[in-house]
Design a protein around this nucleic acid. Structure first.
Lengths: 334, 334
DNA sequence: TTGTATGCGTTATCAA
DNA sequence: TTGATAACGCATACAA
């Protein structure tokens, strides 16, 4: 079978305890012995078994990441950043995809717990906080990412959704739009709620009311964005501007726009939340609210490892969103 | 701490052996007893610890997936499909991102091995086959995806790269192009080599030679596509058509095209390998060779689980690629 | 400084 | 039909 610590011990003519010590706490072992162990390790090709180690330590040297939608490029990028951070520290990463389904998120949490991950970074999907609380009770730190789960004393890293939405609203207002529509995210997710709130409040402050027929809701997935856009564009008096609360729904909305033959930005100004690599290659290139993806991922990992090292306690990081003006927004021409 | 099998045993006034049996092989336990166990399990909220189980069984109920680039939407989609398949069977999924670096791929293989995964689906990154062979030796089946790793008796699922590239070439030839350029993938990856070979051979068969200055190589990442496109477009006699061997490099090429102000397809016909959701929203919508992503992922998972159940042996599945003509290709106008 | 022995949670063998 | 016990691979408390 696999080479175990016993094989190394036999090879080096030492006990398994010494092997283990030489590898984990080299300073407690004679220099000569340490050398002997290293040679034996190299010769046998020994690698400590993660399962045995985890069982013994009650904790595996890996962290869990639960994203709400792995196909969303935003989360795919987050995944990459977090994995890099884990890799740098010699940690493995267990990635789970909740697919925006609370049941899947729960399953993922159970999976991660039973695999004894050292900590979890997690994009809430609206699941209840019980399980999360339970993990925290076991000493497994949890970092909320992108959304906030409603835990008592949360650690979280996310963009300033209100501020980002405010930027979007201001941009449309400054262009002179008044018939402004929204495809909002699910109101039970903090990101969905905050983006809508920030947008709506800014309109109100400018004396513009968001008419009920201009307010639609999606579920942050492509199909819902398409449905909502179809509905908005076939209204008797359609909007002149549209804010779409995430990139997936934007893809769907774009499909509808294309199919119905609307011209952007002449007939409709479009602004999205989340930049995506393809957004700038579109025709016209998309005006968006961009999140600092790299920083979000790095901070979340940092925060998690700091908590594992007892170097930090729960904390909420809110990062600034930025407006990237491209060509999908203009003054209303109708 | 966590609730273990001992807690359940105490609760039910039975031995841990009986609890384990009642859960794993219910038919070996008296109906009444089984009932008692189930009640105790429900009451205590017991969930078998994956680590303890893995140690005992020498195998965890999870599979590993190593993708070459998680930010590539193609692999993100594959990931989703494979995770769904694993989830359906009660298996967990350990996802690793090699980031096109053989060293990272090796690390990932070690990680998966030490976590005792039951099997691995893996996109080769050009790493040596030793480690793979070793895993297979331990009874861990390996399925190559998208590319082939050079194992002796491989299991693999992939698109027919040659045939796909042939479609691309034929399309350009039929439009009347002769000054045709390529941004190829790394020649040491089977997908890179096959796409180039299929393309080049088809040109030759039509009496068109692929001029050396029209043949560029990238590494399947965005930046390399950009560089290659810049080089091609600034040639004294630039091509009238360009085939880009994957979606990431296409994104980069698009950036260069945009920056240099080339009009598509008037000045340059563009055809890519891999469809992506954004490809149809581009201006103009991109003509591409599409892979059956869903089928590839499902087949790979199926193949893996069949091997785990001893229901199948090594096998290579090659799926057909299709040409999707949109608007980025036209007759040469220069 | 090194070795012996124990236990982490689980499943399976064997005995009762 | 059920229970006592061993074993998986590892790290460490304790003994030598």
């Amino acid at each position: 079978m696999s080479v175990t610590i016993h094989d190394v011990a036999r090879e080096a003519n030492l006990s398994i305890a010494t092997i283990s010590r030489a590898l984990n706490r080299p300073e407690t072992v004679a220099a000569q012995t340490r050398e002997r162990v290293l040679v034996a390790v190299a010769k046998t090709g020994y690698r400590p078994d993660a399962v045995g180690r985890s069982l013994r330590e009650g904790r595996s040297r890996s962290i869990g990441l639960i994203v709400s939608d792995i196909r969303n490029p935003f989360y795919a990028s987050i995944t990459k950043v977090v994995e890099d951070a884990a890799y740098e520290r010699g940690y493995g990463l267990l990635i789970c995809n909740a697919d925006e389904q609370p049941a899947r998120a729960r399953e993922a949490l159970h999976f991660l717990a039973s695999h004894q991950v050292s900590g979890v970074i997690h994009v809430p999907t609206g699941e209840s906080t019980e399980l999360l609380q339970e993990l925290i009770g076991k000493g497994i730190p949890i970092i909320d990412l992108d959304r906030v789960s409603g835990l008592a004393d949360p650690s979280a890293v996310m963009v300033d959704n209100r501020q980002g939405a405010r930027l979007a609203a201001q941009h449309l207002i400054e262009l002179g739009h008044t018939r402004i529509a929204v495809i909002a995210g699910p109101p039970h997710l903090t990101s969905g709620a905050a983006r809508l709130a920030g947008f709506e409040q800014t309109l109100q402050a400018a004396g513009i009311t968001l008419a009920p027929q201009y307010l639609t809701y999606g579920d942050f997935r492509e199909a819902s964005g398409r449905r909502a856009a179809e509905q908005l564009l076939t209204l008797p008096e359609p909007p002149t501007a549209l804010f779409v609360a995430n990139n997936e729904m934007m893809a769907g909305a774009l499909g509808a726009v294309l199919e119905l033959g609307w011209r952007i930005p002449e007939q409709l100004s479009l602004i999205g939340f989340d930049d995506a690599r393809w957004a700038k290659y579109m025709h016209p290139p998309l005006t968006v609210i961009a999140q600092p993806i790299e920083a979000i991922g790095r901070l979340a990992a940092q925060q998690l490892f700091d908590q594992l090292d007892q170097k930090a306690s729960a904390q909420i990081h809110v990062l600034e969103a930025t407006l990237i003006v491209r060509a999908s927004t203009s003054v209303p021409r109708i």
